[in-house]
């Protein structure tokens, strides 16, 4: 048997769901254990950061990095793991695209702080104490990381070799990636490991390509037709701009897509693509009526850039 691969898994600004998705490959995890020496995996193993610092450069064969980068610690560890790893993979939507935490780029840092530490209804903080990078306490000094102004994806910090989308990635995609890694048959650098076409192509709903929407509705307002394309029923669905590969999992549960897999191959900005897709189903040529129809779509920015704000053309709001 060939030598075991050295594997590291790390979470930065992450919910932990990506780590759980690795546990979710179930029996296959034993495979991983057989083929790999795990060198760092905070959710499951007792190694500390100081252990990683001692590893030789490039001694980790593959590092799966999940979570966005928002603070000095995450940035430091991203750079450290880049140095120690031959292959660095942005694992999951947060690392790849900024993800849901990337929506924080709709707000300024101070607005967030004020809301969380002063204004929140349950907070009692008349002294306006905020967390500080350095705090002197009776026994000495305490340090916590410095928080940056905005959320970034991993690629906006260091060079990344591969991207695995999904919030979290599906078992199938993780297995595809593991097969590639274990067999040594790696795709070209920069590959996004997902489907080739957009989500609509793998979505089981019936599409007619007719323009027929006179009114947009929010998912809670109607009982919709389970057989038909949601967008054609006036429910905003991000499928047209999203790369396939998830098996249309939300849509199968009668819930529209929000684009966690990121942009389709020919799409550079999900929001821009969705503007065209939404426009194409509107059934009207009268400017006044068009205005009225689109006024029913709430929060396009939050819907279109749910997972991709930090890597979108505009990156953040003003």
């Amino acid at each position: 048997m060939s030598a075991k691969l050295n594997l590291a898994i790390y979470w930065a600004g992450s919910c932990g769901g990506c780590d759980v998705s690795i546990l979710d490959i179930n029996e296959r995890i034993l495979d991983v254990a057989q083929n790999c020496d795990i060198k760092f995996w905070p959710i499951a193993m007792d190694f500390k950061l100081s252990d990683v610092e001692k590893y030789a450069d490039n001694s980790i064969d593959v590092c799966l990095f999940n979570g966005c980068v928002r603070n000095s610690e995450q940035e430091h560890i991203a750079k450290l793991l880049r140095k120690k790893s031959k292959i660095l993979v942005a694992f999951g939507s947060c690392a790849y695209l900024g993800g849901i935490p990337g929506m924080a780029n709709f707000n300024k840092k101070q607005e967030i702080l004020d809301r969380v530490y002063v204004e929140a209804q349950s907070v009692e903080n008349s002294e306006k104490i905020f967390p500080q990078p350095h705090t002197k306490v009776a026994e000495g000094e305490l340090e916590i990381p410095v928080f940056h102004d905005y959320v970034k994806s991993l690629k906006q910090i260091v060079d990344v070799d591969y991207f695995i989308p999904g919030c979290p990635p599906t078992t199938e995609i993780i297995n595809t990636a593991l097969n590639a890694i274990f067999s040594g048959k790696l795709p070209p650098k920069g590959t996004v490991i997902a489907g080739k076409k957009n989500l609509c192509e793998e979505c089981p709903k019936e599409k007619t390509d007719e323009k027929k929407v006179k009114k947009f509705v929010r998912p809670y307002q109607v009982i919709f037709d389970e057989k038909k394309c949601l967008l054609e029923q006036g429910i905003i669905c991000i499928g047209p701009a999203t790369i396939g590969g998830c098996g249309a999992r939300c849509i199968s549960a009668n819930i529209p897509c929000r684009g966690c897999f990121g942009p389709a191959l020919d799409v550079s900005d999900i929001g821009a693509k969705m503007l065209s897709a939404v426009a194409s189903v509107i059934d009207s040529n009268d400017p006044v009526e068009i205005e009225k129809i689109i006024s029913e779509i709430p929060d396009m920015a939050g819907m279109f850039y749910r997972f991709t704000l930090p890597v979108s053309l505009l990156r953040r709001s003003k």
Binding site: E73, Q74, R115, V137, I144
Partner: peptide, 23 residues
């Protein structure tokens, strides 16, 4: 003394503002 420090925060309370509540 012992301090348990939580080094990270993400701001959901803030960026949930402006979203349709059913989302």
């Amino acid at each position: 003394n012992v301090y348990l420090e939580i080094p990270e925060l993400r701001g959901f309370e803030k960026f949930c503002e402006g979203r349709p509540v059913e989302e």
